[in-house]
Design a binder for these strands. Sequence first.
DNA 1: CGGGTATTTGACGACTGTCAACGCCAGTGG
DNA 2: CCACTGGCGTTGACAGTCGTCAAATACCCG
Lengths: 245, 245
Amino acid sequence: MEVTQTLASARGAAPVEPLMCETCPTRRFALCEPVDVQQLSTLRAKYFVLASKEHLYHQGMQVDETYSLCEGQVMLYRILKDGKRQVIKIALPGDFVGIGAQPNSAEPIRHSAMCLTDSAFCVFPHLAKIAKNHSDLAARLASLYAEDIALKNDYLTCIARRNAAQRVAFLALDLYHRLQLRGLNRGDTILFPLTQQDMADALGLTGVHVNRVLSRLENQGLLEVKHHELTILDHKGLSKLVNLE
Amino acid sequence: MEVTQTLASARGAAPVEPLMCETCPTRRFALCEPVDVQQLSTLRAKYFVLASKEHLYHQGMQVDETYSLCEGQVMLYRILKDGKRQVIKIALPGDFVGIGAQPNSAEPIRHSAMCLTDSAFCVFPHLAKIAKNHSDLAARLASLYAEDIALKNDYLTCIARRNAAQRVAFLALDLYHRLQLRGLNRGDTILFPLTQQDMADALGLTGVHVNRVLSRLENQGLLEVKHHELTILDHKGLSKLVNLE
DNA sequence: CGGGTATTTGACGACTGTCAACGCCAGTGG
DNA sequence: CCACTGGCGTTGACAGTCGTCAAATACCCG
């Protein structure tokens, strides 16, 4: 999974090709599409690493910057008044984290961000400020937002209208495809650091029920979760099961 | 509900104050916050009206522009493979409609937009293009996206983790508050053109069950739906019932 | 006035939640 | 090296919310 492409070549590459991060050791995923690299370099302030289970920020904090996830997987979630937890998003390399807050406002952020694996981040000013001062990035940011909204619509639809097995299948396929786009799959296998309770909190189910459904999917030969890895055994079968749209 | 404020005064008004639309007969809600009005005028191409039940676009179409809803209420929804319907959003005056599609791509849009009432729209180029060429608008657009994402997170959480009564209460409160922000409430009453089936499809329930739950909420004196109008009878009671976050 | 749509109500069943107990495994410390 | 411990996964019994089906009523618009 070695990346040999240079920054210069990335600038003219196909739109899907990820842009690498100049200052990150891993040199990957600052933004996932070619933009003006010169400007990016000046915007990027720091680069840092967090260990698995560590939090990037907590619900209620005021977050005045945006983070680009360069490496790892990060879970965004809320704790509700009654103690329940809702996972808002599983962020993957290239995703922005911390975009919920309004710029220039004292509004606290309404979710927490916890690393599911050791993770690496770049720090940027708030996206609204970037957009304002770097108009050539604004278009790309709009696309990122649109993608995020589209993904959220998919999850909303899935949770509202699908049964437990379909939801679990959808989560598995979504994470697989999003990692595959980034070249982070190993054949049909991906890194899958979620616990069954994490899956449940992402899908509006209980841990117990996820367990039952997951076992059934495994017995049917559709997928396999083992040692924090997920293998898609039957792409067609899973897609047919989900049957979303 | 007459609007007397002028464009000039809007420019320096409080951030929450809606910006009026110069070319629309109703002169309202081009964007909901002061921005460069000169630029907006040049960007805005047309103004048009649709009747209740008419569609702005259908799922699968290629939509190459963005619409600002000036007047009325618009339901964004998807039809799934199995025929089920999922309401993605109830758009209110000031909301952008049609932002799901990627700019410059042949990707068809993945939802339909149907007017719940007679509605008026302004037409803009794709938001990504606006952002690129009008950097002072880009920041505002980023905020609009962030708001949309935050609202979607709320609905996601509500649908995933709340029971039927709480979901219905949440929908009622959300629409009330979003209309109140725009000054479109009449005391505790708002225009509410959704059918019970619409509510069900927005909340991941069935029409039958919405009916039962809604009746119970009415019997408890929490709210009232009558003649396409919704009245919040007990704000505190409803908020306590929802208990989100 | 008439026909289609929306609402209302009841009976029944299924999917999922709740509670509880147990097993498994990895990390920890003695 | 081994016992301990806490988290996670697994399994069973049971209950409740919500979906499904069906039918009757009310309502709206032409």
